[in-house]
């Protein structure tokens, strides 16, 4: 299974991964401007730019083989699709946040969408033909889309 890998040596900490992730998951996936200007709530990203003095990188759900979030999910909303991608079925989700607690990496986040709590996690843009949006738009190729175990 292909994964997104962050190369900390080349992350410029710009945050464009977040901008484009938020856009592609918004009502206006083709326009950053519309996504941010016309969406009723500010679009939110499922990739998170982590920054420290020493390093930075866009990180997102690891899609663990043995995913604790699936095990923890009380409604079965968290599931793995045929390609191995861990997805959240928002219809079935009751926003109990058990998965948030279960995730060892802290990569499922809660967000307030106009008074409504939603849980955000990376879906690897599985509906797109190309690489995940954060990878496509990373301006310094610091996010790459590679087979697991592939050497860089």
């Amino acid at each position: 299974m292909k994964k997104v890998v962050a190369i900390k040596e080349y992350c410029v900490a710009c945050g464009l991964c977040e901008v484009y992730c938020a856009t592609v998951h918004s009502r206006y996936p083709d326009s950053v401007l519309k996504a941010f200007k016309l969406s009723p709530q500010k679009p939110v990203s499922r990739v998170f730019l982590e920054k420290s003095e020493q390093w930075s990188g866009g990180i997102q759900c690891r899609h663990c083989k043995d995913a604790p979030c699936i095990a923890a999910c009380i409604t079965g909303a968290m599931y793995r699709n045929r390609d191995g991608i861990v997805l959240l079925d928002e219809e079935r989700c009751v926003q109990c946040s058990t998965c948030v607690i279960a995730c060892p990496y802290g990569l499922i986040k809660e967000s307030d969408m106009g008074g409504r709590k939603v849980l955000l996690k990376c879906d690897l843009c599985y509906q797109l033909a190309e690489s995940p949006t954060c990878v496509t738009y990373c301006p310094n190729e610091a996010l790459i889309w590679v087979e697991e175990g592939e050497t860089l």
Binding site: V12, C14, G15, V19, V32, L33, F36
Partner: peptide, 12 residues
């Protein structure tokens, strides 16, 4: 009209 306050400019 175009700024979305994403702060990419701030970061860069």
């Amino acid at each position: 009209e175009r700024c979305i306050e994403c702060q990419v400019c701030v970061n860069q």
